[in-house]
Simulated scan of single mutants.
Amino acid sequence: MAQRTRADALSRERIVEAAVELLDADGERGLTFRTLTERLATGPGAIYWHVPNKGELLAAATASVIGDALTVATTGSPWEEIRALGIGLFEAIDRHPWLSAQLAVQLSRSPWSSVTPRIFDSIGRRVSALGVPEATWFTATSALAHYIFGAAGQNAANARVLRSGGTDRAEYLRAAASAWEELDPAEFPFLKSIADQVREHDDREQFLTGIDLILTGITAQGRT
């Protein structure tokens, strides 16, 4: 890589951008200050000036990706905006395989850091605009956030397993559905009955339907 010029000044934003690129390529193990200096054609001192350690670098990379995912258009419909936030986070976690683990770390260990407040406030403002009782805002927002991260994380994990095994998703679902159809109906009546739904389902549509189900329950409380 060509040596960067003084005019092409190193910034925290460029460091974080390069960190995201390295994380996308090789996960957390691929992000070191050595690989980062090579990617940016600079010395470690220039990076340490902006980011003192790997933990802060991971947090900054997470915040950057999440910030983009939380950028949704104002439509005047809190329900639709929550759906847009959900699919934005779903797709971000799908595109960045390392993100789910980093979110889990920040949500559990650093709820006061920049990421957790931004996520909960973005969802919570729309929940409060639904007209539901204020006493339910925290629980309702938490339910949505936990569903979004759980479902998106599981989807991303499934995709990684399929990619690593070189397995086609449609083929995998057909095999799973066929196996469920062969189950003993006396022991597994439910799984056998939904096998055909598994074969043709769309992950994003299923995810959004889950958000709609939660929102239906949340808004029902406001009518009681």
Rank of each mutant, 00 (worst) to 15 (best):
A104Q: 12
I87K: 15
T71G: 01
I66F: 05
L107E: 11
L103Y: 09
D121C: 03
E81V: 11
I93Q: 08
V105K: 12
L85Y: 15
R109L: 14
D94R: 14
V65P: 01
E80K: 15
V51S: 07
S113I: 00
A60D: 12
A84E: 09
A59D: 15
L99A: 12
L70C: 09
S114C: 02
S100G: 05
A69F: 12
Q106A: 14
V65C: 10
T74C: 04
L85M: 10
A61M: 04
F120E: 07
P111V: 02
V115P: 03
W98S: 04
T74H: 12
P78D: 02
A104P: 01
S114K: 02
T74S: 13
L57T: 08
A59K: 04
E81R: 12
S113G: 14
P78E: 01
L58M: 09
A101Y: 07
L103A: 09
T116N: 06
P52E: 12
L58Q: 03
S64D: 12
S113T: 00
V65W: 01
P78T: 02
S114T: 10
A84D: 13
Q102I: 02
N53R: 14
R95G: 02
Q106V: 13
G55R: 13
A61Y: 02
A63L: 07
T71C: 02
E81S: 11
P97S: 12
I66A: 04
S113D: 14
V105H: 13
A63H: 09
I87A: 11
I66G: 01
A104I: 11
P52M: 15
I66T: 09
S108G: 08
F90Y: 15
L107G: 11
A59R: 10
Q102P: 03
V115R: 00
S113Y: 03
N53L: 03
I82Y: 09
A69G: 12
Q106K: 09
P97G: 13
L57F: 13
D121S: 10
E80Q: 14
P97L: 07
S110E: 15
S77T: 01
A60C: 01
A69H: 08
S77R: 03
L89Y: 11
A69S: 13
I93M: 15
L70D: 12
P78S: 01
A104M: 10
E91F: 03
R109Y: 06
Q102F: 04
A63F: 07
I87H: 10
V72Q: 05
N53K: 11
G55V: 08
A84V: 12
P111H: 07
R83Y: 05
T116I: 00
G86K: 03
V72N: 07
T74F: 09
I66E: 01
P117I: 00
W112H: 07
W98D: 04
P52S: 14
